[in-house]
């Protein structure tokens, strides 16, 4: 089961004929993802990566029953691509694109509020349900099936954390890359809610980073409602204030943005913190053993 995506999820790729779109679509198919269609305006009627290409998302949905959109379009067109998928009634949209203007995302969030579409990203590595479905760009080989959910703002830190878990024989349920931008579709808190309700997830590894206050909001939820152990790492303890550390969202402005403040909020909510990124796996193993989950 897990959350968001599984072996039956019918995936549509927007930007399937682009360089990254086509390469990643192949990797998704190899992983076992059920890719049913692609969309590139003006290329309708062609075939790409073995699936039909459509001009419009709405037609692709009608013809193929696609229920999850994976977006690889360049940043100036990302907001439009997300809204096209939402207008077509797509339940889940995963936007990988990095570099979308914040103002565009404000409008997207506003337009999607109250609607039935869930957005993951943008600027994210996507979602993967281990052994079943990869909707994104994560290297499938490091994942193994199990019951630890992973939530992360960063892509490469998911690989790092999951690799450490897999090497210790700890498998994963669903890994959700929520994205590194200041405005994202699904927040850490919302991702936690999903995994909290998922019978296949026994514990959660949460990977945050400096900037914003999303980790504090996640901590408030954990303190009140989380029924499963959470292990967290916060990247950027050594980052200087006022500088954007790669991710548009990773900039310390104000006290809430610091790693120290985030760790304190999470620790207060009962989360076990791994101070070192090299010890996420070891920390998770210790917590799982203490809780009798391993």
């Amino acid at each position: 089961m897990s959350v968001l995506v599984n072996k039956d999820t019918r995936v549509l790729v927007q930007g399937i004929t682009g360089k990254e779109g086509s390469f990643q679509t192949q990797r998704c198919i190899e992983y076992g993802t059920k890719v049913v269609a692609g969309v590139t305006p003006g290329r309708g009627g062609e075939t790409a990566e073995g699936v039909p290409v459509f001009n419009r998302v709405s037609h692709a949905v009608r013809e193929t029953g696609a229920e999850c959109a994976l977006i690889f379009v360049p940043p100036p067109f990302a907001a439009d691509a997300i809204l096209e998928a939402a207008d077509a009634g797509m339940p889940l949209v995963v936007c990988i694109t990095e570099g979308t203007p914040t103002m565009d995302m404000l409008k997207v969030k506003r337009a999607m509020s109250g609607g039935k579409t869930r957005l993951i990203g943008p600027n994210c590595p996507g979602v993967i349900t281990a052994g079943e479905c990869r909707v994104g760009i994560m290297p499938g080989s490091v994942f193994s099936m199990g019951s630890v959910g992973v939530i992360s703002r960063s892509g490469t830190l998911v690989y790092e954390a999951v690799d450490q878990l897999t090497r210790r024989g700890i498998g994963q349920s669903t890994c959700i890359g929520v994205g590194g931008d200041p405005i994202i579709g699904t927040t850490q808190r919302e991702a936690l809610e999903l995994l909290n309700e998922d019978p296949d997830t026994a514990a959660v590894v949460l990977i945050g980073e400096i900037g914003g206050s999303a980790e504090q909001e996640a901590a408030a939820y954990i303190k009140k409602q989380m029924r499963k152990p959470v292990i967290a790492f916060i990247a950027g303890s050594t980052a200087p204030p006022g500088r954007r550390m790669g991710h548009a969202g990773a900039i310390i402005s104000g006290d809430a943005g610091t790693a120290t403040a985030k760790k304190a909020a999470l620790a207060d909510a009962g989360v076990t913190i791994s101070d070192s990124p090299a010890e996420i796996g070891a920390t998770a193993e210790r917590v799982l053993r203490e809780q009798g989950l391993l």
């Binding site: 490469t156 830190l157 790092e160 050594t238």
Partner: peptide, 17 residues
């Protein structure tokens, strides 16, 4: 020299630790 912003920050953190 690292790939990925999150891993780059985490690498800096590891050096400090």
């Amino acid at each position: 020299l690292v790939n990925g912003a999150g891993l780059a920050m985490a690498t800096m953190d590891s050096i400090k630790l």
